[in-house]
Computed example of a mutant assay.
Amino acid sequence: MIKKFLEFLENIKQKDKTAIIYHTDADGVCSAAITSLALKRLDLTVTCAFSQKSGQITITKDTVNYLKKNNITKVIILDLSVDSNPDTIKNLELFADVLIIDHHITSNDLNTKKTVMIKSQDISDIDPSQYCTSKLIYDLFLQKIDIKDLNWISSIGIIGDFGIKTWKTFLEYAANNNPDSLKNLFDAEEFITYAVMCDGTKGLNLSYDTLLSAKDARDVIKSLEKYNKVRNEIDSYVTSAEKNAIHKNDLNLVYYEIKPIYNIKSKVSNILSSKTYPKKIIIVVQLDKSRNTISARNQTGSVSMNDLMRECTKDLDDANGGGHIPAAGGSIRKQDKDKFKENVIEFLKKEK
C-alpha cells in the first residue's frame, strides 16, 4: 500500500489541480495541514482544501459538483469513511484521480485504477481507532520526504483522537524536540476544537490556515485564543450532567441531552467519559432546530460505540452513525429523538 501511495504522489504533475477534503475535527485538519505542507515541499500546489458540513462522512453530490466545476484532477480525502458510500467515489473518478487516507474500519475496498485507498489497518496491526489519520499521513509522507519537523502537528491530531496512550513516546519526542511542551500540544488541540464548536467551517478553515503558518503549538494557541469562551459552556454542561443526565446504572449508561449555544457535544462526552464516568457508556445528544447530533463514548471498550451507533440509527430515516469501538458519532432527525433513545436502551439490554 505504501508503494501505491508513492506512485500516486509521483503522478501528481504541476498542471494538476489538487483538492484536499478533510474531516471536521482536530485529526482531520491536522492531516490536511501535514498533507498541504508536504506537497509544498515537493513543489506541488494545493488548489483548495476544505471540509464538508459536520456529520457528512461521505462525499456529497454538492462536493462532487464543486470539484468538477473547478476542474480538479486530483482529490485527496482525509479521515473520512467515504468507503461506506462507494458510488460517490465512482462519480469523482469520472474526472479525477482519488487518494483516500483514513483510519476507520473498512466498509468497501475502493481501490481501482483511479483510486488509492489506504487504511491504517492496511499497514499496521495497531488498533485503527488509535492509528489516527494525522499519524498515518505523517508516516506515509516520511517514506517520500523528511517532515519530522511537523511531528507537533501530528501530535495535536493524535491528542484529538484519543491516541495518547498508544503514541506516548511519539508525543514526548515531539514536545522535547520543538519549542513546545506537552501542555502546549494539548492546549492547541483544545483551541482547534473550540474554534470548530464556535464557528463551524469558518473555525476549521482558520485552524487549517493557522497550522500552515504556525512554527509550533504556541502560535496555534495565540491565533485561536479568542475561542476560550467556549470552555465556560463546556464546564457548565459537564458539571450539570450529574443532575440533568439520565443515569441507568443497570445498563452502565449516562444518557445526556443538551441544547448549548456552541457545538460542544464531542468535548462534553470526552470529558464525561475520560474523567467523570470513565467506566460508563456516555451518549450525548445535542438538540438542534432540525437535526440532533450524537457523540458516543466508552473508554472501557466493553461495548463497541461503532456497533451501537450503526444499529441504533439503521432503522431511522435520514440518519447516520458509526466510528470506532471507544468513540463514535452520528446524526438523526429531530423527530426521531425518542426512538433513538429507545434503540440505545434496547441495544444495551441485548449486550448485557
Rank of each mutant, 00 (worst) to 15 (best):
N228M: 04
V230R: 02
I126K: 00
F186Q: 01
N228D: 01
P179H: 11
T169M: 02
T201G: 02
K202V: 13
T112C: 10
P128V: 13
L171D: 01
I164D: 02
R218E: 14
I126S: 01
I118N: 01
N111Q: 11
F170E: 03
N111W: 14
A175R: 04
K183R: 11
A188Y: 14
A195W: 08
L171H: 02
D219S: 11
L212N: 03
I234V: 15
I192T: 01
Y208R: 01
D125G: 00
Y208D: 03
A214I: 15
M117I: 08
I126V: 07
G200T: 10
A175H: 05
K222L: 13
M117R: 04
L182H: 06
K168D: 14
S155C: 12
D149F: 13
T210N: 08
A174G: 05
E233K: 06
T193H: 06
N108A: 04
S107V: 12
I101R: 02
L150Y: 14
I164H: 03
D187S: 07
R218H: 11
R218G: 12
G157T: 11
Q121Y: 11
R218C: 12
L206A: 07
K144L: 07
W152G: 00
M197T: 04
S181Q: 08
F141V: 09
L136T: 10
I101T: 03
D219T: 15
L211D: 08
R231Q: 07
D161F: 09
Y227R: 01
L185R: 03
D122W: 14
S134R: 04
T169N: 04
E233M: 09
L150S: 01
T115I: 13
R231H: 07
K226W: 07
S120V: 13
K215D: 09
S213K: 13
I234M: 02
C132H: 05
K114F: 10
K215L: 09
I101M: 03
I101Y: 00
S134M: 11
T112V: 15
W152K: 04
A217S: 15
P179G: 06
T106C: 03
W167K: 00
F191E: 05
N205K: 11
L224G: 03
K202T: 14
D109H: 12
A214G: 09
G200A: 09
L99K: 04
I234D: 05
